[in-house]
Amino acid sequence: MSDVILKIKRQDGPNSRPYWEEFKVPVAPKANVISLLLEIQRNPVNLQGKPTTPVIWDCNCLEEVCGACSMVINGVARQACAALVDTLSKPIVLQPLSKFPLVRDLMVDRQKMFENLKKIKAWVPIDGTYYMGPGPKVAPSVQDERYLISCCMTCGCCMEACPYVNPKSNYMGPTCMAQVKLFNAHPTGAMYKDERLDAIAGDGGIADCGNAQNCERVCPKEIPLVSIIAELNRETAFRGFNRWLKGKPKGPGLAAPG
């Protein structure tokens, strides 16, 4: 067991002043950052030897599939449960994600992402009053593409690294763009294709992307966000031209208001 120094940016509540606190924590071989935080919880004493409040953080699955433990580790957004202490430069600096409302210490509220997913109808419409039979078949090549995107755990790393996700801009972020592609590529999900394209052609939509391409670099699931955004750039442009050139479709108005 060796010791490691942790430097943590703390904040007691959403409106309190942030401050830095250092801890010296014993590490077991192959430990991750979560186990260091657990160690502080067990023995909340800072580097100066003063007792303090335990550091608060969020986590759930501990195997990089839920996204809850995202934080800024040594300057880069990633999952604490997948950050192995042996691979990190020391002292280890922990900060909460800065693009989401802070709850306390390292815990943030990622609700805004889920609200955005509602705006783009990130689901397959199957609710009805009768059984609609089995869903249509999906080609394996489409399955491959969709599988990768379906790994998204709304962890928020892409949002954290994006220069256009910030208080001055409404940008929904790359997460939403990936989900538009995921559900538009599904035969039943495609029923909302145009609604989704219109949603990302609106305020805070895809046009806010400035091609910094950080999102793909930090994505823990290696989702090809850059190509997805470029492809949706094409689709929104075509949709826009078409809508204007063709005019509004006429009919009795069966479609739900977009």
């Binding site: 690294a161 220069p163 256009y164 910030n166 001055k168 400035g210 091609n211 391409q213 950080n214 670099r217």
Partner: peptide, 18 residues
């Protein structure tokens, strides 16, 4: 004005070009 630069945090080539 509405972009928030982070080139020293994310030192990727494309981020610098951005």
């Amino acid at each position: 004005y509405i972009s928030k630069t982070n080139i020293f945090q994310y030192k990727y080539f494309r981020n610098w070009m951005f």
